[in-house]
């Protein structure tokens, strides 16, 4: 029992740590597109390890296999990138401010307009790069 309790405590602490880091990133990072990284990544793993802990806990406590927490994990892993993508798209649409030192302003403008290519010269450049 002691070893399993240690494992459960480890996963719970890991999960809590990642959730906290995700929210610290949300509060601390300077612009929206950077803030987007923190919750989408840190929270998926945070909730994931909390659910692993919960699975272990209930499997041992009731001494039968309890894996229905897997459903929430799968659901969050599928929806986290989708909602991040939708939020980024909405932010591009309403012209959210970016940090001044953000690079790649052509790509940013092209993404806002949903235009096909940043520019002809850029296109030729990229294809050379990917072939080499």
């Amino acid at each position: 029992m002691n070893w399993t309790e240690l494992a459960i405590s480890f996963f719970v602490l890991l999960g809590g740590l990642f959730m906290l880091i995700g929210s610290i990133g949300l509060a601390r990072l300077p612009d929206f597109y950077m803030r987007l990284h923190a919750p989408t990544k840190a929270t998926t793993l945070g909730v994931g390890s909390l659910l692993i802990a919960s699975m272990l806990f209930f499997s041992i406590k009731n001494s039968m296999f309890s894996i229905h927490e897997v459903l929430i994990t799968i659901f969050l892993f599928i929806t986290a990138p989708v909602s991040a993508h939708m939020m980024a798209k909405a932010a591009l649409h309403v012209d959210t401010q970016t940090l001044e030192r953000t690079q790649g302003s052509e790509a940013h403008q092209a993404a806002t307009a949903r235009k096909s290519t940043p520019s002809e010269a850029d296109l030729a450049n990229k294809q050379e790069g990917s072939e080499s």
Partner: peptide, 16 residues
């Protein structure tokens, strides 16, 4: 967009 992101994080935190 920041507020939507904050709401998204809030619901994931409340799941935890």
């Amino acid at each position: 967009a920041d507020r939507i992101l904050a709401l998204d994080t809030l619901y994931i935190n409340s799941i935890a």
